[in-house]
């Protein structure tokens, strides 16, 4: 399978990465080089093989549904590019 320029633009949008129109051809070439490389996986007979879900056999632990810590507003927003009154500030989302 190979990706065309429309697909490159669509993937970039899905990945939320702005891609300059001038960069589309080269990115497409690079993605196709990787997709060609992984094509050899089609040779393998995977009939009846379970996809791996955990590399070490383990049961996912559940923790108690309890408050472990809190009240750290200053630490939580301390690295925010913009914040106000203990909130993260983003451009208007709802019209």
């Amino acid at each position: 399978m190979s990706v065309d320029h429309t697909t490159v633009r669509r993937i970039a949008h899905l990945a939320r990465i702005a891609l300059d129109e001038a960069d589309v051809p080269q990115m497409g070439e690079e993605l196709n080089a990787i997709l060609t490389f992984v094509e050899q996986l089609n040779e393998v007979d995977v009939e009846g093989v379970e996809p791996m879900s955990s590399v070490v056999p383990m049961r996912l632990r559940l923790r108690d549904d309890a408050v472990t810590e809190g009240g750290n507003v200053a630490a939580v927003i301390g690295n925010a590019p913009r914040s106000e009154d203990g909130f993260f500030v983003v451009p208007k989302v709802v019209e």
Binding site: V44, V49, M52, S53
Partner: peptide, 15 residues
């Protein structure tokens, strides 16, 4: 399915 699930099946075989 064609890529991700297949790769995870192959991962089972590698292990």
């Amino acid at each position: 399915d064609a890529y991700y699930v297949r790769a995870q099946r192959i991962r089972t075989l590698i292990k």
